[in-house]
Design a protein around this nucleic acid. Structure first.
Lengths: 226, 226
DNA sequence: TTGTATTTTATTGTATACAATAAATAAGAG
DNA sequence: CTCTTATTTATTGTATACAATAAAATACAA
């Protein structure tokens, strides 16, 4: 049962549901419904929602409550641009401590990715793709940077929900393997370049500039074509 | 009067006091005392403290409440290393939009810094030094990065409180002016290098490796020297 | 005294009650 | 019927009450 989860556990459950698109951008998160679902008071739920809000996973509007954040086009670009700047920069730091054990661990993760892909388990696939990036960053000896990257990965999941094509999420299982191989063979510069291109590719796969549901042209949408 | 400040205002007041070292690292932040001081219920105060905790300005230990964060040596290094990585990277972005108006604004800020220095107003000096860095970052067209830098600047203020020499805080009023002049004359590369050296200099001015009160060698300290 | 056990005090953790606000519905005027 | 204005309903905002925990002070035995 869900009974008597602590705040951290509630936080993780909600976050997971959002990252895996079970709770899509824009979804309302009413305090009393969640309170009932988790068997805790609204106080605890509010605490969790406020945390998610500070991490920009959720937005809280005064007197209107919490919703899953729906990133704007600008936010999407800023987040991807940040990742394009930062993640390649961390590669050399990661490679300093790169070991056989690391390689094995990440190859196992890629296998899971492949399985999720085979089973068309979209939720698991999204989760694993993000995990790959932030666990890699966590191998650098700078947890301040790693935590920031992790947050950007979670936010990227929202971006994909809003602006992603099918291509955005499933394209790069093969690609991730390439990186591991470059790391194994100590090719710093190539690994760094790979990461940059990988992220640029993800960014370019987004359907930016399509004004997703914000200002719909009803004239065009319902034009009489009979 | 302080009566009826909203949460944001309370947050800013507490943050300011911490950044300016009125509330030093390690200081307790009891909910009921703050609640009384601001004329609001503990609920509001808790919300603010939890926000500060997520921003790593404050630490909250279960059943022990909130204290102003006392950064470890490792945390200090990670934060400074992050700034050394990131702030020079943002300089080109900032320079794209650099204008006469910006120059004027920042020169005015430097004037305030000088005044604070002349009046030996340590609090104002610390605040202005941090402000210089994060307002500069805010000129880049990436608010995600700018917000992160801002947080690192606030955390740096804690680092200086713990590991800083007098030198750390007051050394670089003249220096900041040099940067503005490089920006005015569009010397991208030099401005970038300057920023890196500036931050490296700040880092090296810290008294790291002195184990500040953590694990004192009493044997050595009270060795009989008579 | 010194060390342990017990009580007291101070402080945080959590739930709930009530107030305030926004959204949805219903009522009434033109 | 349409638009505006009340009224109701649902939901969030805030304060407070009480429980749980940790720290401090006291009492007691060796």
């Amino acid at each position: 049962m869900n009974n008597m989860l602590n705040d951290e556990a509630i936080y993780k459950k909600i976050l997971k549901s959002i990252v895996e698109h079970q709770l899509p951008p824009g979804a309302r998160l009413p305090e009393d419904k969640l309170s009932e679902a988790f068997g805790r008071s609204r106080t605890s739920i509010r605490k969790v929602l406020q945390r998610l809000a500070l991490e920009r996973i959720v937005t809280i509007e005064p007197n209107k409550g919490a919703h899953v954040n729906r990133p704007s086009e600008q936010e999407a670009q800023e987040i991807l641009d940040s990742r394009i700047m930062l993640e390649p920069l961390l590669i050399p730091e990661v490679m300093k401590y790169w070991s056989k054990a690391n390689s094995k661990y990440f190859r196992a993760m890629l296998k899971e990715e492949k399985e999720a892909e085979a089973n068309e388990d979209q939720a698991a696939l999204i989760q694993l793709t993000a995990q790959f990036h932030y666990e890699l960053a966590a191998l650098s000896d700078n947890s301040v940077m790693a935590d920031f990257i992790q947050q950007l990965c979670y936010r990227s999941s929202l971006i994909i929900a809003v602006f992603g094509s099918r291509h955005s999420v499933s394209c790069d299982c093969g690609d991730h393997l390439e990186l591991i191989e470059l790391m194994d063979s100590q090719q710093d510069k190539k690994a760094q370049d790979w990461m940059k291109h990988h992220l640029v590719h993800i960014k370019s796969s987004l359907k930016l500039g399509v004004s997703d549901g914000q200002k719909i042209n009803f004239q065009q949408l319902f034009a009489n074509t009979e």
